[in-house]
């Protein structure tokens, strides 16, 4: 009789991205130097969409806010919490300054499971007619309108009250949208796209050179840092290419 109040179940687990996250951690390729520049160019191309989406930094903000809000409004120290969290955050908008008008800017929705007072590492969500201003020094004022479903991985369960998930891996599917700038409108549609936002706001994309018709070398990770510099990571370390036609070196 005393157990009349049931604990709500966490939501079904979304697609497990932990194996993909492990590939980001440990790319398998061993590259000959003559392929590096080509793969860096490919990495830059593949990172464009994530970069145009402002690396979806506001996903991290939404998760941090959720964790802080749960800590402030609940008592995870004395109680074990379990259940479902649905968070929504307005997209920043494509005006000169970010705004919080969800009806105009569109919404990002996230669903997270809570178990043992921790946010599960895997989560799902969607971007609904999300408007934002692409930050690109070379082409300012590019307005992005995008919708997509997503699953994500925080790398590890996040303790309630912790503010900064270290790395966030995002996999977008059924991406529809457009990029509008001075040169016209570009279609951003993609069937599936994944990238990882790591500490320091670097954006990483994982790909297999074999998809370009190259020999099967394993996977590589292209990392675009917040300051615009980049490296190509493979099994032995990182390739860095200097400007002015200098040779790429493995560090």
């Amino acid at each position: 009789m005393a157990g009349c109040v049931a604990m709500p179940d966490p939501p079904p687990r979304p697609e497990d991205l932990s194996a993909l996250a492990a590939q980001y951690d440990r790319p398998s390729a061993t590259l000959p130097v003559d392929l590096v520049q080509r793969l860096i160019d490919e990495g830059r191309r593949r990172s464009e969409l994530g970069d145009l989406l402002n690396r979806l930094r506001f996903v991290r903000t939404a998760i941090s806010d959720t964790s802080i809000g749960l800590h402030q409004n609940g008592n995870a120290d004395d109680f074990l919490l379990q259940g479902v969290i649905n968070a929504r955050v307005p997209c920043p908008g494509d005006g000169p300054e970010p705004t919080t008008d969800g009806e105009v800017n569109g919404l990002l929705r996230l669903q997270l499971g809570v178990e043992d007072s921790r946010l599960r590492r895997g989560f799902s969500g969607s971007a609904e007619r999300c408007r934002l201003l692409a930050v690109s020094p070379s082409a300012p004022d590019q307005r992005v309108l995008v919708s997509a479903t997503m699953v994500g991985d925080l790398g590890a369960d996040l303790g309630i009250g912790n503010t900064m998930p270290g790395d966030i891996l995002l996999k977008l599917t059924d991406v529809t949208g457009s990029l509008t700038g001075e040169t016209g409108t570009i279609d951003l549609s993609e069937h599936a796209y994944h990238f990882r936002l790591v500490r320091g706001d670097a954006l990483e994309v994982l790909f297999d050179p074999a998809s370009l018709g190259l020999p099967d070398l394993g996977t590589v990770v292209f990392a675009l840092r917040a300051d615009g510099s980049y490296v190509l990571r493979e099994s032995r370390g990182e390739w860095v290419c200097g400007g002015g036609g200098e040779a790429c070196v493995l560090r």
Partner: peptide, 29 residues
């Protein structure tokens, strides 16, 4: 106290620009 039952909380709160709907159960540690 022979049995302390679980608590079930549905709540909505805002933190920053994020609005959170929580459907949570709580049991003493």
């Amino acid at each position: 106290l022979a049995h302390q039952g679980n608590a079930h909380v549905t709540a909505q709160f805002s933190e920053g620009s994020t609005t959170v709907d929580a459907d949570l159960g709580a049991r003493p540690r």
